[in-house]
Every structure is written in structure tokens, then in C-alpha cells.
Design a protein around this nucleic acid. Sequence first.
DNA 1: AATGAATGAGCATTCATTCAT
DNA 2: CATGAATGAATGCTCATTCAT
Lengths: 194, 194, 194, 194
Amino acid sequence: MNSAVIDKREKILKAALNLFTERGFHNTPTSLIAKEAGVATGTLFHHFKNKEELINRLYLDLKKQKMNALIEAVDETASLQEKLKSMWINGVQWGIMHPKEFQFVMQYSNSPFISHLTKEQAMGEYQSTFCLFEQAISDGLIKPAYPEFVADYFEGIFNLAVSHFRKYPEKISEENLDLAFDMCWNGIARVLES
Amino acid sequence: MNSAVIDKREKILKAALNLFTERGFHNTPTSLIAKEAGVATGTLFHHFKNKEELINRLYLDLKKQKMNALIEAVDETASLQEKLKSMWINGVQWGIMHPKEFQFVMQYSNSPFISHLTKEQAMGEYQSTFCLFEQAISDGLIKPAYPEFVADYFEGIFNLAVSHFRKYPEKISEENLDLAFDMCWNGIARVLES
Amino acid sequence: MNSAVIDKREKILKAALNLFTERGFHNTPTSLIAKEAGVATGTLFHHFKNKEELINRLYLDLKKQKMNALIEAVDETASLQEKLKSMWINGVQWGIMHPKEFQFVMQYSNSPFISHLTKEQAMGEYQSTFCLFEQAISDGLIKPAYPEFVADYFEGIFNLAVSHFRKYPEKISEENLDLAFDMCWNGIARVLES
Amino acid sequence: MNSAVIDKREKILKAALNLFTERGFHNTPTSLIAKEAGVATGTLFHHFKNKEELINRLYLDLKKQKMNALIEAVDETASLQEKLKSMWINGVQWGIMHPKEFQFVMQYSNSPFISHLTKEQAMGEYQSTFCLFEQAISDGLIKPAYPEFVADYFEGIFNLAVSHFRKYPEKISEENLDLAFDMCWNGIARVLES
DNA sequence: AATGAATGAGCATTCATTCAT
DNA sequence: CATGAATGAATGCTCATTCAT
């Protein structure tokens, strides 16, 4: 009983994810989502107050999944640089293996469809990661550029790398993932004077 | 009369740019564009076959403007690195001074609203720039990563930099522009062993 | 258990009365009635076949209450004029003390939501009162206008008086109730030549 | 051209009047109004911002018609009582000849569908009539009951009379109209002591 | 009896596009 | 070329009612 209920909710979210990434938010009728989910139109509105709540709910769920993927199995005893690299690799792999989820989160991060409140909630999950950058700067591990830029930069290249590997799947290899991280990192890292 | 005609066409394009960036394509009725442009609803369809043609036309115009801004006043006799830096700085400055135009081009570059044909035409403008990267790689000026990644990387960080400066306008300064380029470049540049 | 059942039924009727008078029939979802009654949506349909039956049932209940209020404690030995005045005063007082109930009965008396059958049943209760008018006419107590008009007139002014006192509660006083009846009555009563 | 435009607007208003009085506001889909008016659904919303504006517009139009009917051809030189009687007779005749219009105005006068603003505008038209009552009271022509009640009373019986004659059309005659007015009036008029 | 998730027909409203003037 | 009234398919959302538990 309960599982059937959750099932429908999940099916709606899944269908919404597929359709939103394929067709965009405004070009995806709720009726189509319901149809794709194998559910009546009214059912969608039983689970989500309206279309906007659906998209916000979806965004929050996926953002959380992404963040969980980042920190999964990161060796707590490793060095800061190694931690960041692990997270980067984890994240890129998650992005490659969950293309829709990744695209959705990236595409709607700056979208007006996502409410301010949702963005704040999502940002909360990000906080712990952000601390790592601050620490890396104070440790002298990375360039002393102001932290806002570092954060934008890091996430930007991260997204860029995933997008790239989705565009050229044949380029995916451990070597190229390392290369991508290296290009990112050597743009941040303090160049040690010899 | 002729100038009045051009006027209306321009006004429509201008209104469309403002509205598309503020509200998105699907959330911008043609009637609103017409109203904002001070023109009758029918007039829009005299100048553009339909809404899609309008957006494609707009995209192409702006992409061309952006490309022209890049190569403007680049010293032909300068070194390759200096040329690339000039273009970068030019581009970032254009992006800062034309926020709507920049956002529109970036936002819709990967959008399904832009037809394949339009994208190809736009890509044509990019060709000459792309050559510079190939040359830079073969010159040993930048890392021998495969050129597709370099191109994505370069453009990605470029967009990232502009977005960043739009988010934090108080950070705009010659110094920070240089810093941004430096962070980009030292992620690409071969690190010379001492 | 049985009392709990009755309780729910009563709660539904009570909630329906409040909501129907505040928002109208069509603007009151059954789900809202259920919610306001503290009951599941399905429960409403256990007690009433459908929304229409609910409203008809409610109408009949309230009409009966109103009629009972009219004849309550009327002195059987009093004169006809005194009886009618007692009923009038009783009725106005009931209307003042049961504003929702009064409004509902008045509002839906001519409404298509109330079925023909229901109206006839309700009219049955009215019959005995109607006889009084016929008698009053034949007694020469009131003007020899045809009885249909007298009945409409009497009830019309009655409703009017209640509505008036609900609009201006500060005007409620024994004196003004008498005044209202007097205005009603002297429009009916044969003016005796001196 | 212009006449065609007005035509459609008028047709919509007319269809709306018929349907609203027959089926009520909430039970009348805009699609049905459009259909009945021989017009596309969109056309309705071209002329009226939404359903609510349509009903408010309609109310205002009809209220104005009713008021105009009241004061039409009233002899300015006649006595106050004669003036009021003329208006009463005019009004009842208008109500009889325009049953839908009359019912609509009466039915929605106290309805929440009519906005406060609309009611105020409509009340404005009523002002001059209201003055007549004040004058009649100060002239000692009618009972010195407080004017709010007199106004409610007068209008109430007026509506009542029209409703009555619509229910019993066979009772319509000059004689009965006079009778109805007489019953109204002798409930107001000061009974002169002999 | 009671529950509340599910249903899907129905509704108000929007909007790209047309076309007579 | 320009206008803007008219169109009607499409869409987000509501709600009375059902039914498995």
C-alpha cells in the first residue's frame, strides 16, 4: 500500500526529470508527465501542489543526491588536496553516470523556476564543501584569489568537465579524468617557486 | 519610412532580447514583445515568420556581435599568447558591458530552441578562433591535451569569468581581469620546468 | 460509537452550512467541507449520496428549524392578529440569532440547487401558516388583496426585516422590532375609516 | 468594422446574462458563454480580462439600465409622492419587461462575485433616488422611521412586487400594480390623525 | 463505518498566428 | 507595410466521486 504510493510519487519525479531535461520546463505539460508516469493528471497534483513545487522538489532531491555522491567514500585521513581530488572524481563520475540528473541540476541552478527558498536549502548542503576551499586557501594550498572566485571557478570547471565527457563519451578514461582535474588544479594551485 | 521600418524591426529584436533574458523564451508571449516594442502584434509576424525565427535571428545577430568584439583591435603582429589574452580581455569586457547579449548567447547556445542550422552558422564564425588553439598546441604553447577539451575549457572559463564579474560587479578591475586570465591560462599552459 | 457517528454527520452539516453561506455552493469543494468537519473526504459520501443530497438535506433541516421557531410558544387562545405578530417576532428573533441558518434558507429558497421535491416538502411545513392568511382575509382583518400576494408580501417583508437587522445590529431593540412589524402590518391592514 | 466589434461584445454580454440567470455564475463555463454568443473562447477574454470582469461589467450595465428606467419620463413638476409612485411603476414595469436583467441585478446585488468597487459605482447611480426618501421624511410625507430602514423597505417591497408578478404573470394589470404600490406606501405613510 | 489516494472530466485562461481593413 | 480583433488548440489545475484497505 505504502509502497504503491511512494511508487507513484517516484514515477512522477522520474518522468518529470526525463521530460524536463529533454524538453525544458515550459515545454513539458503536466499532462505529459502524468502520462509518462502512467498516472492520472490529478494524481500529480495530489502529490505536488503545483508544477512549480514539483520542479523544486525534484531539484532538491537531485542536488542532495549529487552532494552525497561527492562525499561518498572520501578518505577522511587523506590530505586536503587528495580529498578535493577524490570529490572531483566522484562528482564527475556521478555526472557521467547520471546524465539527466546532472543536467537538470546544472540547468536549473540559476533558473528562476527554482525558488529562492529552495536554493538556500540546496546551498546548505554545499556549506561543508565550501569550507574545504577556505581551508585550502588558508593552508596556502591554492592561490590566494578571493574565495568567491575560487568557488565559482572550481564548480564551473567541474560542470564543464562533465559536460565535455558527456559530449565526447569516447574520451572517458581514468587518464582523461586525471587530466581534467589537473587542468583545473593547476589553474588554482600556487605555483611553487623553485 | 524605410528607417522607420528598420526601426520597428530593431525595436522588436531589442524588446525580445530584454524579455527573453528576463523571463525565458517560453514565458515571453509574442504579444508582450510587440507591446514592449511599441508595435502591433501582427507587425512582429511581418518581420519574422514566427517566434522561432525571431529567436534564431536574434541568436545569430548577437553571436556575430560577440565574435566581432573578440577580434576587434587585436594586434596582428603580437605573439599568439598575447593575441589570445587580448581576445579574452576583449570578450570579458564585452560580456560585462553587454550583459543581456552575453547572457542570451550563453543561455541559448545549448538550447533546443536554436535550430541545428543556426548553430552551424554560428559555429562558422568561431572557426578562425578554433584554429588559434590548434596552432597554440602545435607550437607547444599550451598543454597537449586534445583540442576539443582545450576549446571547451577555454570557452567554459571565459563564460565563467564573465558570469562571475556580473555577479560581483565590485570585483571588476584590470587587475582581476588579469587574474582571471591567469587562472585560466596556467591551467592550460605547459608548466616550464626550471 | 453511535454518538460518534451522529457527531460526524452533524459536523459535516454544520461545516457545510458555514461554508455554503460564506462561499456559496459551487465555490465550496466537498473536500473543504470534510476538512472543516474534521472528517475524511470519503466519509462525506457515506452519509450523503452526493453533494446535492447534502445541500437538500441541509435545506430541509433548517427550514424545519425555522418553522418550529415561528410557531413556538404562540398562545393558541390569542387573537389572529396577535398570533401573527407573535410568529413574526419569533421568526425575526430566530433569524437574528441564527444568521447562517437564516441566510442559507433565504438564499437557497429560490435556487436551482434545491430540488423540486425538496421545495414541496418544505412547503408542506408552511401550509398551516398559509391558512392563517386566508382566515385573516376572510375575517376582514387584512386587505382583500388576493392571498398569493399577501403571502409573498408578508414573507418578503419578514426576510427584509431580518436582513435589515443583521446589517444594522445596533438597531435591534424591542421597539424597532415592533416598528418593523407595524410597517409591515399597516401595509396590509384595512385602514378603518373613522 | 466597429459595429462588428461592438456586436461581439454585446453578444457576449447578452449570452452571459441569459446563462448566468438560468444556471448561476459558477455553473456557467466561459466556453458555453462563448458558444452561445457565437464567438471563439479566446474572444471572450479579448473583451473581458476574465470571467469576473465580465460579470462586474454586466452588473454595472444592467444597474444603469434599471436606474435609467426608473427616472425615465418622471414629471418634474409632480408632487413628491407622485414622483415616487411614477418611479415605482416605471421600475416594476421595467422588471416585468426585462426579467433576466431584473433577476440578475437582484440576485447579484449582495453577491461576493460583484467587487466592492463595482458596488460603489452602482451605488453612485442610486444616490439621487436616495435623496428623495430623505426629503420625503423631512416633508413629513412618510413615517419618521430611520432612513436606512425606509430605503431597505422600499427597495425590498419593490423587488418583491416584481418577483411576484413574474411568478404570476396573469396578475399583471394596472389595477394590481396600483394595489402593490398602495400596500407598499401605506406601510410607510404617516397615518394622519383625524 | 471510515479513510484518503487515485481518478479524469471539466474549466478558466493563454498565446501563437491569421487576416480583413 | 501596419494594425489588432479574432481564433481555438493547448495547458495548469480543480473537484466530485470511487474504492481498496
